[in-house]
């Protein structure tokens, strides 16, 4: 109870930092993710996230120490390399998109495991903290991380605002955009770059396995409530931030299972990343069921009403 109070009043500086970081992340992931989902790039984001793992290990090899900027730069480079591989396989082989995504995702991830295990088997390797990137470790977020996330968020939101019309055209009618002379290839690349930036920013908090979910779930939930793009973007941002708040809050409040698996020794809460994803999933399920007009329940009721109307008009005709 006291914990809850402390959390709600944001007394704990550490909780405040983590909460701010994850909420910003949720917000920007929701907005950028909306374009990804509309452009059917959702699973490419997943490939990107998994493919970034070896980049982190390579960055550690190059820098020789734990350094978040270097890790994220490496992650970005390998994430984009993975996306490039998917594009190459699609263009030059008979391998289909889904297989290419699955291949890149798993092989790059395997490479990441191989490299990080090599690092961990070295005497200084334990300090690398590479395992934290697999499932994420939001609780260890510090001020500098929040500033980095804020920077990514600012860049992404400004770009989205400036290129709103172009991105909208790209998502809804790419051929039309091309026919009136918009540089669709550049726009597609830009969108991919934005996705990569957001995914990489999300890695330390939610990890490579679930980073893409931050991009997919809030926009999919927002889509049930709105048909206007700007509204979808706004709602997805709000849902993302809300899910992040809920997940971070729960992880701080719920009784932890005792000893940490990572040998930390102190008591700790449930992992934040999965809780954020579960909170987002709850928002999605709620939206899918209860949203007016597009929701499942609304559809059932609509069909029932139509059936009753048909039935009553039928008997009316007989009488």
């Amino acid at each position: 109870m006291q914990d809850l109070l402390r959390l709600l009043t944001l007394q704990d500086a550490n909780t405040r930092t983590v909460l701010l970081g994850t909420m910003l992340l949720g917000l920007v992931a929701g907005v950028v993710g909306s374009f990804a989902v509309l452009r059917r790039r959702a699973l490419l984001g997943d490939a990107l996230a998994h493919a970034s793992l070896p980049g982190i290990a390579v960055a550690y090899f190059l820098v020789g120490d734990r350094s978040t900027p270097a890790f994220l730069a490496g992650a970005l480079a390998f994430g984009l390399l993975g996306v490039g591989c998917v594009a190459f396989l699609r263009a030059f082989t008979r391998i289909r998109d889904d297989a290419a995504i699955g291949l890149v995702l798993s092989v790059f991830f395997g490479l990441g495991i191989v490299l990080s295990r090599i690092i961990q088997n070295r005497p200084t390797g334990n300090r690398a903290g590479l395992d934290g990137f697999i499932l994420g470790k939001a609780a260890s977020m510090v001020r500098a991380d929040v500033f980095a996330i804020a920077g990514v968020a600012a860049v992404s939101l400004v770009l989205v605002a400036l290129l709103y019309k172009e991105l909208r055209m790209l998502c809804f009618d790419r051929d039309f955009a091309r026919s009136i002379g918009r540089p669709v290839v550049v726009l597609d690349a830009l969108l991919m770059g934005l996705l990569a930036l957001v995914v990489v920013a999300a890695l330390p908090a939610v990890g490579v396995v679930m980073a893409a979910a931050m991009l997919i779930i809030p926009p999919a939930a927002a889509r049930f409530w709105a048909d206007r793009l700007w509204l979808v973007l706004a709602l997805a941002g709000v849902f993302g931030a809300a899910a992040a708040m809920l997940g971070t809050g729960l992880s701080a409040v719920l009784p932890g299972p005792g000893m940490g698996a990572d040998g930390g020794g102190q008591s700790r809460g449930l992992p934040t990343g999965p809780l954020i994803i579960l909170a987002a999933s709850a928002v999605f399920i709620g939206s899918a069921l209860f949203a007016p007009t597009r929701g499942v329940l609304a559809g059932v009721m609509r069909r029932g009403r139509t059936r009753r109307e048909l039935a009553s008009s039928g008997t009316g005709a007989v009488a």
């Binding site: 059917r40 396995v209 997919i216 049930f224 990343g273 999965p274 579960l278 999933s281 899918a288």
Partner: peptide, 21 residues
């Protein structure tokens, strides 16, 4: 009315997160 790729992303992320918890 979710696109198939998004549906897949949602389902397995949610299940995986649940499993981890």
């Amino acid at each position: 009315r979710v696109t198939p790729d998004a549906a897949m992303g949602i389902v397995f992320s949610a299940f995986f997160a649940l499993g981890v918890i």
